[in-house]
Design a binder for these strands. Structure first.
Lengths: 336, 336
DNA sequence: CCTCGTTTTGCAATCCTATGCAAAAGGCCG
DNA sequence: CGGCCTTTTGCATAGGATTGCAAAACGAGG
């Protein structure tokens, strides 16, 4: 090949200017019309492009955002990832992706590695940070946004849907539908989202004079949800189920129909949470609380870039989403 | 906070050694027991971690792999992404992700940006590269692996399933099932996968004395597939459909059942391609050709790291996958 | 205790670009 | 054309690590 890496120095030589001139042209600093042209021409001939690493090293800004994500099998996350990535690309940022499977030391390592990479900011999708890590990120001056997870820390921004309100809506909807034995297969109760949804749900049931006959943790997995479903049927004789997210709700519907031959919503109503694209597919037609991914992504990016570029304080955003009425749950009179 | 960035120099000072000693300890070069201890201790107290950027700049290796991906709504890709990322993390690499939506200039830009980031290698998932780009990557000495896409270039490695054989299997299966009017809703015929599957399918039909009554391009989208389905029914009266991938096949089944009230497989058999997790869910129980994601990911990583670390030549891997018999297509006598 | 061979160590250069500073060039007006 | 103000430009340094080279330290054997 031709002498491999082309540096600003070579371009400078060819254009008959100094290296700093080249740098200025490519970093958008001031330069005379003439030099810009000469440099651009030389660069084009040589196929020069600035080395982002060197640039980052000196500016201290990498224009890379670290994304920590735990689940990708729940359709909500690919969806979010795609939007996040696209929007960030438009702003000249890129995503360095890290899978964190476990919830403990795994995450610690991953965050350390992110810091090593000098990322400008971190987004965690459904992953929490312990206090030590939070402190580290803060000390390193790296903003963090928790996506779809809440945490009691003034140091980190977070973007969630209004899970409590969402849970409430489901309760009101199911009560209005005249259901007598309402159960809840919760999202992992170690997560704020799982807790909040359950919380709102119980509160509204109580307010309406009803109660939840049983709550079982489904751990956000298909397997967990399927097992919970079995118990809900055999032990608790439910006639309605609020499931902590859509991903589990599909498993619940599969189990109900396939294993138990139960008609949904004829015999049992099922309501999910998220409104992933698949929820609208006719095979499930899942009634569910929408988490507006688009808005959540916008808020996440606004918040993160605000902290990175304008040193704004971390903010907690809570976005409301409507209950999407479909066919998996009996619809009360007058609700349409 | 305490003086912000901690450098090897500060660690050196505290440990009473030279900066190069610190570097040697952290880069695994030789050092005496005593220095290692002193340095480790000092580093721990200060919370020092090497700056990956600086390291990459001088070594010329970033341990970052660029991943270009077009679709994330097709469950096959999140699945692949998750595995790729996990396996690469184990090897000390990380993924910088780029979405390339269009097929043309979009990809060009994205690759240039990847090169700017000095990635050690590139994986493209269902995205092809034009000759100019291929040349650039080659000139920059950056290996490329095409994942799930083939291309006539000796410069790039590729990993696909054996799409021709897969297409053949489907044809044989449908003919054995006694179907008379077999149609094909192809994957985008601008893609090697789409073409090869169709190719194998047609070849085997011809070999068996049958023929395909119609082929319509579904462009890998739900919408495209739904429209194709309508025409297949109204214009071509098919009794079996081979669909270019699972993602579209779900749409086809939805359309058949919902819009036309057709029984699957009673009236029309549907066969997909990929065997994404959802294909096994009872709501679809899709008969489909499996693309062994796990093996494909392994092959991709082996190939890529082989090129990066041992300068091996690019290789073309083709992995066979079985036809998964489920319930969306009539099963011929004696096939189980 | 001296010598020789092997490790360890420190020095200094290198990777490539950005940027503060001072000098040079350019523009405008009288 | 000279003086003054604004841009443009080049020099030199910085950013944080790796690494070849030569000097220093170490260990063993005589």
């Amino acid at each position: 090949m031709s002498g491999r890496k082309i540096t600003s120095l070579q371009v400078a030589a060819r254009a008959g200017v100094s290296q700093s001139a080249v740098s200025r042209v490519f970093s958008g600093a001031s330069a005379s019309q003439k030099t810009v042209e000469k440099v651009r021409a030389a660069a084009a001939e040589l196929g020069y492009r600035p080395n982002v690493l060197a640039r980052s090293l000196i500016t201290g800004r990498s224009r890379i955002i670290g994304l920590v994500v735990a689940y990708l099998n729940n359709q909500f996350y690919p969806e979010a990832l795609q939007r996040l990535s696209t929007r960030l690309q438009e702003q000249g940022y890129h995503i360095l992706i890290f899978m964190a499977h476990g919830h403990g030391p795994d995450v610690d390592m991953v965050i350390e590695e992110l810091l090593d990479h000098q990322v400008d900011g971190i987004i965690t999708a459904s992953v929490g940070l312990n206090d030590a890590l939070t402190a580290r990120c803060d000390a390193a001056g790296i903003p963090v946004v928790l996506f779809n997870r809440g945490q009691d820390s003034a140091l980190m921004a977070e973007v969630t849907s209004d899970n409590i309100a969402g849970g409430r809506k489901v309760a009101e909807f199911l009560m209005a539908g005249g259901h007598q034995r309402i159960g809840h297969i919760s999202g992992w109760t170690g997560s704020s989202t799982g807790l909040d949804r359950a919380q709102g749900f119980h509160d509204a049931l109580a307010d309406g004079g009803g109660r939840c006959v049983a709550q079982i943790d489904g751990f956000y997995t298909r397997k967990g949800a399927a097992e919970a479903t079995e118990r809900m049927i055999s032990e608790h004789k439910v006639d309605a189920l609020f499931v902590g997210n859509d991903h589990m709700a599909f498993s619940v519907m599969d189990t109900l129909r396939e294993t138990f031959g139960v008609d949904v919503p004829g015999e049992i109503s099922v309501v999910g949470y998220d409104d992933v694209p698949m929820a609208a597919w006719p095979a499930y037609a899942l009634t569910t609380v929408r988490q507006p991914v688009g808005q959540m992504v916008e808020a996440t990016i606004d918040s993160l870039l605000g902290m990175i570029e304008h040193d704004l304080p971390p903010e907690k955003t809570r976005i409301k989403g409507p209950l999407m009425l479909r066919k998996s749950a009996r619809i009360p009179e007058g609700w349409i």
